[in-house]
């Protein structure tokens, strides 16, 4: 029947690698926010959707240059992240974890419905097309290659920020001991807002990359949300390095699984793998505790 090492399989593997970069970026923002604030943004993928619509309208409707529209999109989603914390998370920060989860679930509903209301259910596309890159028999999609590079660069930048800067160090410190941060002269609320804006900004960056590859519609968040959650749990919630590796594993399942069967099957197989890992290492592959 099918040779295992045919060139199309190789193509699927390589495309999976590229997809992995994108998924790693997706999981990064969620992990950052969880690691610092201990809250899961169920509506994370919907923030990405907001960014995609913003870029679409600024670029395709209002005629801004694409890069400028993307920059504005990142800033907008960053602001949305900060607002999400200030107005939605902050009031329930002392409440039970379930309420924190649910309130962002409510935001998910709201954003999806509001997007339907404002933009309609038809699929939109920014209409930028790139020629595929062909190497021998293998062809790559240019947007995937771009997003792989940008995702890696974004992650590196975040890593350096967290490692080198005072603010980044404080962001890492606050997850370890919230109570004594004021003794360092750090206003914890301000750190939370900044972290939320960063998480939003990463969602915005993901939006820039997704908008090059996918159509925009109000339910697009559902295509990326669940897989992002799985990656985060597999890598250990709040563990950015673990999420990074998990993203590449999942991407292979989706890409190669999608190659042999259908895309949905790729997800299903990834999930089965996920359950298997749960039996083996329930704290996530790289989770501590």
């Amino acid at each position: 029947m099918m040779q295992i090492f045919d060139v199309f399989l190789l193509e699927a593997v390589l495309n999976g690698l590229l997809l992995g970069g994108l998924l790693a970026l997706l999981s990064l923002g969620l992990n950052l926010v969880f690691g610092v604030i201990d809250v899961v943004w169920i509506c994370y993928a919907e923030l990405i959707m907001v960014g995609m619509y913003a870029i679409y309208y600024l670029y395709a409707v209002f005629g801004w240059p694409l890069l400028l529209a993307m920059a504005a999109g990142v800033l907008l989603v960053a602001a949305a992240g900060a607002a999400l914390h200030q107005f939605v998370i902050r009031p329930v920060l002392a409440a039970e974890p379930i309420n924190q989860l649910l309130v962002t679930g409510g935001v998910l509903f709201f954003l999806q419905a509001a997007a339907t209301l404002a933009f309609g259910i038809e699929f939109k596309n920014i209409g930028v097309s790139f020629p595929p890159i062909v190497v021998g028999d293998i062809s790559f999609s240019m947007p995937r290659l771009i997003s792989f590079g940008v995702a890696l660069a974004g992650m590196l930048a975040l890593y350096l920020f967290l490692k080198r800067s005072y603010l980044g160090t404080a962001i890492r410190a606050i997850s370890q001991d919230r109570g004594i941060m004021p003794l360092m002269g750090v206003n914890p609320h301000r750190i939370f807002i900044i972290t939320s804006a960063l998480g939003g900004g990463l969602a915005g960056l993901a939006a820039c990359l997704l908008v090059l590859q996918y159509d925009i519609h109000p339910a697009i968040g559902l295509s990326f949300g669940p897989i992002t959650f799985l990656i985060c749990v597999l890598g250990g919630l709040g563990n950015m390095a673990g999420g990074f590796v998990a993203a590449f594993i999942f991407a292979q399942f989706i890409s190669v699984g999608g190659f042999f069967l259908a895309v949905e099957w790729g997800y299903v197989i990834a999930f089965v793998f996920f359950i298997a890992v749960m039996f083996w290492r329930p704290q996530g592959i790289w989770g501590s505790k």
């Binding site: 409510g106 935001v107 709201f110």
Partner: peptide, 9 residues
Amino acid sequence: STIYGLMLV
């Protein structure tokens, strides 16, 4: 559903 979502929050 927009109002519904808002009310849930």
